[in-house]
Design a protein around this nucleic acid. Structure first.
Length: 463
RNA sequence: GGUCCCAUCGUCUAGCGGUUAGGACACCGGCCUUUCACGUCGGUAACAGGGGUUCAAGUCCCCUUGGGAUCACCA
């Protein structure tokens, strides 16, 4: 069997959004699984709406998710001569014809049809025109069959069929000579040798027209797989009012790409009871047939849970690197402070996003924070002060600040003084962190180091 | 409105004729505990409705209802 060739073909009119990313992911996974090719094509025939910024944003999003492409990016705007050639070919074969109807005329007919309760499809006024009208502006329409049915076996949805009479003669070339979408996709998918088209659900209605075009061109029809839409909590199409829809916005909100990939793939696809998948596992286990047929609601809570999981189990060093961009805006400067990787280790279990983790780093790198007055009286009671002073003294003599060693110091003190751990840990936590929820206090001391820990305790005691 | 698609806990889903309808997120309890978390144990919660087919239907068929997509010289 020949190599499978798939493509992701976004139009560069905005950033890479959640839905597009999932479509790209499914294409990529199948390509990797079947050892085929994954091709990136930019659909920028709408010159007015397409921007370079959007192209960059889409590539950035793909790269962030780890979806690399084997060929491209190709730009449809580079293929205009090719499309023109095919239009001529169809025209010469009588499979397309020139239509001189003006947009105004068409609008009028459409309105009329709707008001009379008829289908608003092209009436075929120019379909059988005997002669050309030199100099007159025209569009080129595809001569679609009037009867019969066009059907295909969707890899996800099963057999879908349409009555040809429902389809009208679509415009393949505009008055200005530029080609239209339904035509360019077909030409490109043919010329790029695409064997399988995985795309959004919103394209099912375009599929029969495209199949007819393949047939008119005498080209093999690819397989189709239409992936269901992603909806917001109110079951309407996912949009800004449901929250961020840009993939990169999630990076900026402190999400890890592996969490996003894992979430996206599980939205509409499953493998038994499994929830957590690495990219490699996905390549191994993914099948397009297992993708569900119904639309799914985007659930930020579950994404958050996955993100927490990947932060918890992630490599601290890598996380430290990813954390860096979030620190300046919090006034955190790691130079001269505790080792960031060590800091990350204490925060992994309690951070659901890198943003939360970044917040958690602040006290480590702020040695002159303010102590809240109310809390001072709450934690630094006479007894608390006494205990803190002794901890400082014992810490000063300690040469090992490993978790176990610090634990031994605290436990030893509790035994000597006959107090509960809580009685000493809480005042110390307050002295070291300013009272914020913090990682385990033994670890905080270990990360802060002896000098800084003692200094902070003495400073609190001086209040 | 026409056409097309879809329908299991609130959400993502398992189920592919015979199950106490399973898992996950969220939620609610217990435990753990130096704060906050993590973790752990347990709990609430679903086959949209109606007809068939069958010894047997969440699973197959039809209808109803509900939801979504699409009907451009946009992609």
């Amino acid at each position: 069997m020949s190599e499978i060739r798939l493509r992701f073909a976004p139009s560069p009119t905005g950033f890479l959004h959640i839905g597009g990313a999932r479509t790209a992911l499914f294409n990529w996974l199948l390509a990797r699984k079947e050892k085929g090719k994954f091709i990136l094509r930019i659909e920028d025939t709408d010159v007015a709406r397409s921007t370079k910024e959007s192209v960059d944003a889409i590539l950035e999003g793909m790269t962030w998710l780890g979806l690399d492409w084997d060929e491209g990016p190709f730009y449809q705007s580079d293929n205009f001569p090719l499309y023109r050639e095919y239009v001529e070919k169809l025209l010469a074969a009588g499979k397309a014809y020139k239509c001189y109807c003006t947009p105004e005329e068409l609008d009028r007919k459409r309105e009329l049809a709707i008001s009379e309760g008829r289908k608003p499809k092209y009436d075929g006024a120019c379909r059988d025109l005997k002669e050309e009208r030199p100099g007159a502006p025209f569009v080129v329409r595809f001569r679609a069959p009037l009867e019969g049915t066009t059907a295909f076996d969707d890899l996800i949805k099963g057999r879908i069929s349409f009555q040809n009479e429902e389809l009208d003669d679509l415009i393949i070339q505009r008055t200005d000579g530029t080609p239209t979408y339904n035509f360019t996709v077909v030409i490109d998918d043919v010329s790029m040798g695409i064997t399988t088209v995985i795309r959004g659900d919103d394209h099912v209605n375009n599929t029969p027209r495209q199949i007819l075009l393949y047939e008119a061109l005498g080209c093999p029809v690819p397989e189709f797989a239409h992936v269901p839409m992603i909806l917001g909590a109110d079951k309407s199409r996912l949009s800004k009012r449901h929250g961020a829809t840009s993939v990169m916005a999630y990076r900026d909100m402190g999400f890890l790409p592996e969490a996003m990939v894992n979430y996206l793939v599980r939205l509409g696809w499953s493998h038994g009871d499994e929830e957590i998948f690495t990219l490699d596992e996905l390549i191994d286990k993914f099948t397009i047939e297992a993708v569900g047929r119904s639309a799914g609601v985007f659930n930020p809570d579950k994404l958050l849970w996955l993100n927490a999981h990947y932060i918890k189990t992630g490599d601290p060093e890598r996380l430290a690197g990813l954390l860096l961009p979030f620190l300046p805006e919090r006034g955190v400067d790691v130079t001269g402070g505790p080792d960031l990787t060590a800091v990350v280790r204490t925060l992994q279990d309690r951070s659901r996003t890198m943003l939360e983790m970044a917040d958690g780093t602040v006290f480590y790198y702020t040695s002159d924070f303010e102590y809240d007055e109310k809390s001072v009286t709450k934690f630094l009671t006479p007894a608390g002060r006494e205990l803190c002073a002794e901890v400082a003294a014992r810490l000063e003599k300690a040469d090992d600040l490993s978790h176990d060693a610090v634990a031994a110091i605290f436990e030893g003190m509790c035994a000597d003084r006959g107090v509960k751990l809580k009685d000493v840990a809480q005042p110390i936590r307050f002295a070291l962190t300013g009272g914020a929820p913090s990682p385990a206090i033994y670890d905080v001391i270990g990360v802060l180091g002896r000098e800084e820990s003692v200094r902070r305790i003495r400073r609190a005691l001086s209040l």
